[in-house]
């Protein structure tokens, strides 16, 4: 591999990352905190349980459930009783995506941040169009991989979110010199669709997403 674009990124400890609200904490207390940390750092947890969603309410029976801290990470496309999706849930879906050049996740590099995720749900109906806005912060302002990272996030969300969500991915203001150009490309459905038919590109994205499962 050629020289990394950002050789010394700031890295957050996994324990610093935001998780589902503290109210789950008391129930989870009996689980050894170090164990939680170790298991979380493997970060394959998140999707493992999405098919077992029905049992999610029964929190005592499965301690893994409490570790991952939320009920459904990947919502089935045509599920009728769909849970309201919030920013934390979006964060959980994308935080464990790997950076294309570091063996770290996008959350550890603070490329994705909970505060930069906004979910606009139409309160009138659960079946109406909703919007997810994600602002990503490249580690350096000339990061040539910013588009690839954005594309990885879009692919991840398109695969996991129900079709009623319109996904808007943008570069956080003043964090990249080609901000407008990247924003336009990331939100052009046709370019994204064509990119996803490029086997080479899809290979790289699959690599990035392999830490999500």
């Amino acid at each position: 591999m050629s020289d990394p674009i950002n050789a010394n990124p700031v890295v957050l400890d996994v324990s610093q990352l935001p998780t589902r609200s503290k109210k789950d904490q008391t129930e989870a207390d009996f689980v050894d905190q170090n164990l939680v940390r170790n298991v979380l750092s493997l970060s394959f947890l998140e999707r493992k349980h999405y098919e077992e969603e029905e049992s999610a309410g029964d929190s005592g029976s499965d301690s893994d459930m409490q570790i991952s801290g939320d009920e459904s990470v990947c919502v089935d496309y045509f599920e009728e009783e769909e849970e309201e999706i919030d920013a934390q849930e979006i964060f959980d879906l994308i935080s464990s995506i790997s950076d294309p050049e570091h063996p770290l996740t996008l959350a550890q590099l603070a490329v994705v941040n909970l505060n930069d995720i906004e979910v606009k749900n139409d309160t009138r109906s659960k079946n109406s169009i909703a919007e997810v806005l994600i602002k990503i912060t490249p580690t350096i302002t000339h990061c040539s991989l910013a588009t690839l990272i954005g594309l990885g996030i879009r692919v991840r969300l398109e695969r996991c979110l129900p079709p009623r969500y319109r996904i808007n991915i943008r570069i956080k203001e003043n964090t990249h010199q080609s901000e407008n150009q990247i924003n336009k490309q990331l939100n052009d459905k046709e370019r994204v669709a064509a990119a996803c038919e490029n086997d080479q590109l899809l290979g790289v994205i699959s690599q990035m997403l392999s830490t999500c499962k």
């Binding site: 109406s128 169009i129 129900p162 079709p163 009623r164």
Partner: peptide
Amino acid sequence: SYAHGVFE
């Protein structure tokens, strides 16, 4: 509205 359900 919603000519193809929630789809584009």
